[in-house]
Design a protein around this nucleic acid. Structure first.
Length: 475
RNA sequence: GGCCUCAUCGUCUAACGGCUAGGACACCAGGUUUUCAUCCUGGCAAUCGGAGUUCGAUUCUCCGUGAGGUCACCA
């Protein structure tokens, strides 16, 4: 049995989004569950599209997600270098083999000439095949012209670990460029050479490569290589459910999700279950469970639509299941500015109150600001309140005064506050909605808050009495 | 247009050819929590169409239809 070696091979042309993460995650899972190796390789053969900083960004994203790799550009390994632009001689050597075999030739045409062939074909309503325009194959290659693969068109049928049995006809095969006129290999050539050199056992990639797979099979044969296990992952679709997820559809950089306060565990579970499940009714999986249970056979063939609501549910669910210490650590960077000087115990008391309401941590600031700062009185909260808006301000003042008077005597334990609030209810003959909404507005300047007695207790006597007075003064 | 692939609730999905097509998200309603959220209960909601094989088809075959991908000196 050969060692399982998988790779993630992005081109450094942008950030890592959900689709890319899934490819990386699945490859990582296969490597880990088989005690194999996971490799990061950068495919930077297009100098035009290269994006500065992308390489660092990619590495940082994988790190943040806990998708650790055993070999890679910044780590080295037995098959270094892991950046394609530093492997040009290797591609040259393999290209020479093909030239000697008679399976590669110089493409003498200019871009406009090829373009003309293409137009011709399109006018004739026929598919464009470069091999129908093959030139004399004898010309020597000096590196200033592109080098093309001389294909051997034939039908193929092969097995894909996700898609099952696939097949294609000879028309799917054509002569493609191996080495560009700038000396860089194309993806089509470089990835095959590298996967072979690096002894990759499973090639996982998106659906967009399916049409060119027959060409790759043809090239494996020409190079005398065994083909690796192929696994084609269906696309993740944008919110419209049609097109492949892209930046334009709001596909966020994964780091953005982490900055918004989504847990790594949520993202991993969410992305893994976008197209995969273990056949049971389990909905959320830990990293360890995924390593144990994941299988390419159970990855769906159809594209899955990206739906943030499910991610929100998973994240809220995981937040609710956290103990207070973990919660405190995870929330560390999301407190409002005004929380700066607050003590750990005060913040923990608040977290206990808001834990059930958090979907992701960047909501924390708005949810808890009133615990740390006196917010300006907002008259619209009363004006727009169903019950309070119709009441006379004199009455409202009276209610607040009675509340203040009672709370002045309280020890501010939750129990005592609860008792006093209930007493006030019967003393004033008001409905809970009226009295409690009024107190809530006065003390939090918000239409909704955690439990009233609990909130008041955490806020403490000074702030509560002061804010009630402010509200009275504003009426 | 050629080629390749796909097709179950709005969304993610389950169902050796065999219960009334199951679960989850979302949504709606009720209950608990004196607000919101949580939690509990219930509800709404799907096999793209047509043939064929079969005692029986979501499942297998064919033909349609629809969708996506791809036809680069991008990956």
């Amino acid at each position: 049995m050969t060692t399982v070696r998988t790779r993630f091979a992005p081109s450094p042309t942008g950030y890592l989004h959900v689709g890319g993460v899934r490819t990386a995650l699945f490859a990582w899972l296969i490597a880990r569950q088989n005690h194999g190796q996971f490799i990061l390789r950068l495919e930077d053969t297009d100098q035009q599209r290269e994006f500065k900083g992308a390489k660092e960004h990619l590495i940082k994203s994988l790190q943040a997600l806990g998708l650790d790799y055993d070999e890679g550009p910044d780590k080295g390994g037995p098959f270094a270098p892991y950046i394609q632009s530093e492997r040009l001689e290797i591609y040259q050597q393999w290209a020479q083999k093909l030239i000697q075999n008679g399976r590669a030739y110089v493409d003498p045409y200019s871009t406009s000439e090829v373009q003309a062939f293409r137009q011709q074909a399109s006018l004739a309503k026929k598919p464009f095949l470069f091999r129908e325009h093959r030139p004399d194959l004898g010309a020597a290659w000096d590196g200033t012209k592109p080098l093309r693969f001389k294909s051997d068109p034939k039908a193929y049928s092969w097995h894909d670990a996700v898609m099952g049995d696939l097949s294609s006809k000879p028309e799917a095969i054509d002569d493609f460029i191996l080495i560009k006129s700038d000396g860089f290999p194309t993806y089509n050539f470089a990835h095959i050479v590298d996967d072979a050199e690096m002894q990759i056992s499973h090639v996982m990639r998106g659906q967009e490569f399916l049409p060119s797979t027959p060409n790759y099979l043809n090239l494996y044969e020409a190079l005398g290589l065994d083909r690796p296990i192929l696994a084609t992952l269906p696309h993740i679709l944008g919110p419209d459910g049609k097109k492949k997820l892209s930046k334009r559809d709001g596909a966020k950089d994964v780091l953005e999700y982490l900055e918004l306060g989504y847990l790594v565990e949520s993202l991993i579970s969410f992305i893994a279950t976008l197209g995969w499940n273990d056949g049971t009714t389990q909905e959320i999986f830990s990293r360890e469970e995924l390593v144990e249970k994941f299988s390419l056979k159970r990855v769906g063939k159809a594209g899955a639509q990206f739906d943030e609501r499910r991610l929100n549910w998973i994240n809220g669910n995981l937040i609710r299941s956290m103990d207070i210490h973990k919660l405190y650590q995870s929330a560390e960077n999301y407190w409002p500015e005004s929380a700066r000087g607050a003590t750990e115990s005060y913040k923990k008391a608040i977290l206990v109150l808001v834990q059930d309401r958090l979907k992701y941590f960047s909501e924390l600031s708005d949810l808890t600001a009133f615990f740390f700062e006196d917010l300006p009185v907002k008259p619209e909260l009363i004006a727009q309140h169903k019950q309070l808006s119709s009441l006379d301000h004199v009455l409202l003042k009276q209610l607040l005064s009675s509340t203040k008077a009672s709370l002045q005597e309280s020890d501010f334990s939750v129990e005592d506050i609860t008792k006093r609030l209930n007493d006030l209810l019967s003393a004033t003959k008001q409905k809970p909605v009226v009295l409690f909404s009024l107190i809530r507005i006065a003390t939090t300047q918000s239409p909704a808050s955690p439990g009233l007695a609990e909130s008041l207790s955490v806020l403490g006597r000074a702030k509560v009495l002061d804010r009630i007075q402010q509200q009275i003064d504003s009426l």
